[in-house]
Every structure is written in structure tokens, then in C-alpha cells.
Amino acid sequence: MTAPVIEVRDLRKTYGSGDTAVHALRGLDLTVARGDYLAIMGASGSGKSTLLNILGCLDVPTSGRYLLDGIDTVEFGEAQLGILRNRKIGFVFQSFNLIPRTSALANVELPLVYAGVRRAERRARAMAALRLVGLDDRAHHRPNELSGGQQQRVAIARALVTAPAIVLADEPTGNLDTRSSQDVMGILDALNASGRTVVLITHEDDVAAHANRVVRVVDGHIAQGVPA
């Protein structure tokens, strides 16, 4: 049997200490199989964003285990986590996080710059990623020359350019109109259909309906017996 791409055991995250401590995650367990399409839902303050940050190696747990694509991340330092993040994970953020004065192509190239890929190769790979999301004809446009939906498609291309094992999307349609949301979800659907593992956070039932599986985070736990 193929090892899961994400395996979390007894994951705990506490911010602060003493009487003011905030227990964001309280012994959470989660397994995501390779090729899965998972939606994580939960109320504000439930712990779902903390969970996504740890899954994306942007934060570290207080205790527990997290295996990413078979690699135990618990003992990794910040530099090692950064390398792992760049190689294994593609991020799609609600706010796009594009560099304003830089072209779509340069934005998509950025993870390859960090990875030390040579200019000609990273240019070719970035163009291929933009082509995949239908924006190769906008490669030299800056973010302010693109619609919100187009900016999110650039962000998806950037997430894909390193050929990551997993794509993490944090409210990927949160700042988009209905048509642009449908376009973005269509791209994520197609990525999953081609074998990519996709994990997204959303508060919208119609977005979660695209996933093969829905889990709900309640008070730092994966809720049991709660309808998806």
C-alpha cells in the first residue's frame, strides 16, 4: 500500500503559556492519501488555519508527529523546513500574495529562483505552468493589469511550477466573484483528476462539494460524527 502523503498524529499547538495560553490544536489526527482531494472546514478559531500552516511547514507543532510525503518534519529547523516546503508543497492563498511590480511570469518563476534553477529552465517551466491555467498570453502583465480571477490563476501556476507532491489552498475563492470562483475550482478539480493531491480550507459548502472528502475541525480536533 502506498504511504500517505500527509500523516499527522496527536498534533498539538499552543500559543502563549499559563492562564493566557491558547490551545489551537488539541491532539489532532489526520491522514491524507496520495491523490486525495480534501476540504477542511471549521468556524473561525477552530484551528483549521493553524493546521494548514503546520501542514505547509509555515509553522511547527508544540508536540505530535507530522510526516510529509514520508519525511518526518518534527526535528527540522527553519532552513530545512524551507527547503522541504519549496520542494514538496504548492500554496494558493486567498490574497494571491503576488509581487505587485513584477510580471505574472516572474511571479510564477519565484519558487524556482529560490531553488536555484537556471534562468532558461525556470522561464520554460513558468510558461508551461501559466499555459496550464490558461494565462500564457498574460505572462508579461503585472498583477494590477489582471482581474482577481486571473491573479488567482497566476498564484495556482506559481504553486505548480515546482511540481509539488501536494497543493494547499487557503480559501482560494474567498476574494473572487462567482464566475472566477468556478474557474479556479475547475483548475483545482483538473489538477486532482490528473493525480495531484489537493487540500483546501473553505467555509463555503459549494466549494467543499468539489472535494472527495470533507473534514470539520472543531476546537482543535477533527470532529467525529459531524455531517460533511
Rank of each mutant, 00 (worst) to 15 (best):
A209W: 11
V215N: 11
T2W: 01
E204A: 11
V113L: 10
V199R: 02
G16A: 06
R34A: 14
V154S: 08
I99H: 03
D72Q: 08
I99W: 04
A126T: 11
R12P: 01
V8T: 07
P100I: 00
G27M: 02
G82R: 09
F91M: 04
S147A: 06
A223H: 03
V226R: 01
C57T: 14
L105G: 09
E145V: 00
L200R: 01
L112F: 06
R213Y: 02
K88L: 09
R131W: 00
L28V: 05
G174P: 03
A155L: 11
R179Q: 05
G195F: 03
L28I: 08
L84C: 14
A115H: 04
V32F: 02
V154E: 03
D10W: 14
I99N: 04
H140V: 01
A139H: 14
E78S: 12
A33W: 02
T2E: 11
S181T: 03
I40G: 08
L55V: 01
L52R: 12
V214R: 15
H203E: 02
G77L: 09
A193V: 03
R196C: 00
A106D: 15
A228C: 07
L84Y: 15
A223D: 07
V167P: 07
P111H: 01
S46R: 12
V92M: 13
R87Y: 06
E7A: 13
V214H: 14
L98S: 09
E78V: 12
A128G: 05
F93P: 08
A3S: 13
V60W: 13
G18W: 08
S17A: 11
T50N: 08
G134E: 09
P4F: 12
V207P: 00
L168T: 12
T197H: 12
L52H: 04
V74Y: 09
G90L: 04
R34W: 07
A120N: 10
E171V: 07
